[in-house]
Design a protein around this nucleic acid. Structure first.
Lengths: 211, 211
DNA sequence: CTTTAAAAGAGGAAAAAACCTATTTAAGTA
DNA sequence: TACTTAAATAGGTTTTTTCCTCTTTTAAAG
């Protein structure tokens, strides 16, 4: 019998997922928490630890990436499986880098979860096709190392993602409208877009701006 | 025994939620679907209907609001309980307006779901404190209930949320650029925005467009 | 068969956005 | 200090967007 901890701020999901895991033959939930801080506190307070932690990525207080880093450092034998509703490339890479053994997406099925748990116990990891693709792309697909934006460019981008005119943005940033013109063209080139709507969408899709 | 249908694009949650509902004494899941279109097709195809539908709000293909409207219209006896990870005021109001009997938030607990199901069967509705507050605020604070978009307006909106120029959109929609001009002005007024970036942001923030 | 309302379309004008090609300024470095 | 580079800035032009007011067409209602 292998013991599993479930960590998810979405309580309904955490509890339901526990029920699901308990229905699997060789697995049993030992505890369920609602954020990274809680699971760490539980681990630090108890002598017997779970074999696997099903860890949500986006949580308040302490998110899955931070919690996983801490856990891998202090309890390297505990295997962490990341579970997220989002499949943002950044999240996946950060989570795996932090030490997660698997990364499951929201469109997973009941049986997949059992397979993921079993494989993680047996082979030490479980990757869906989707995640494997992200990993491969990240390794030799140096296509878009996403040129880091400078402070000022970032500031402009955030204004560009509002209904302000460039003149208004210029005022806000204490720059000439012509300089704003320059920032716009720079970002158009960096992001390979051709107008402001393209810029806004790119920013949102790459988490440079939260709508 | 009351029958429940679960509709959620998050399969893991849909299946887990089904397990949870099945564990309640007087409830049993009759079917589980992954978007609004699926549930409607199942209802239309079968003679025996569920008493309650647990309906996610944000789903692809056909979202919970649209599905609920259809269901309340065609099968007024089926009670819909909305479930959402988001607690956006607009979502709540639209969902209740569409005919949902309850609106549950992501921080719900196992027992709350059972209570919500029971109350909805007995009293016809179940509101958490949080949702009640939104309702009261909405009554006092004149939140305008988002005029529904027409088919063609929706189509235009989706094109407007791309980097296409209005001329290109006109070509795509087989309309004159001047008519497109009209659609734009209509939506500017409906959404109370003043330019295309505002339109795009409004669409995204209100789930009329997925970035 | 009118009356009415909504959708589609048009003309013209002003504002904003987008695209060039420059020059000036500031800052870091050999 | 002189050299180099990037940020800031200008001028000028074209295209697109936005905002008016107005007519035609279509569809629904009395």
């Amino acid at each position: 019998m292998h013991y599993v901890a479930v960590v998810d701020d979405f309580q309904l999901l955490a509890q339901a997922m526990s029920t699901l895991v308990n229905s699997f033959k060789n697995f049993q939930v030992c505890y369920s928490c609602n954020n990274g801080k809680e699971i760490i506190e539980k681990l630090d307070a108890s002598l017997k630890h779970p074999d696997i932690i099903l860890m949500d990525v986006n949580m308040p207080v302490l998110n899955g990436i931070q919690a996983t880093k801490y856990i891998k450092d202090k309890y390297p034998n505990i295997k962490v499986i990341a579970i997220s509703v989002e499949n943002k490339i950044k999240d996946v890479l950060q989570m795996l880098e932090a030490g997660a053994k698997s990364y499951l997406l929201k469109d997973i099925e009941k049986s997949t979860l059992e397979i993921a748990l079993t494989e993680t116990i047996n082979k030490g990891y479980y990757h869906t096709e989707h995640v494997s693709k992200i990993l491969v792309d990240a390794l030799h697909g140096q296509e878009k190392p996403m040129t880091a934006l400078k402070e000022r460019e970032m500031e402009f981008l955030n204004y560009a993602c509002t209904d302000k005119t460039y003149k208004e943005i210029a005022d806000k940033m204490f720059l000439s409208p012509k300089t704003i013109d320059g920032y716009r063209n720079t970002l158009f080139n960096k992001f390979n877009v051709k107008n402001r709507v393209g810029l806004v969408l790119y920013a949102i899709r790459n988490q440079l701006f939260n709508p």
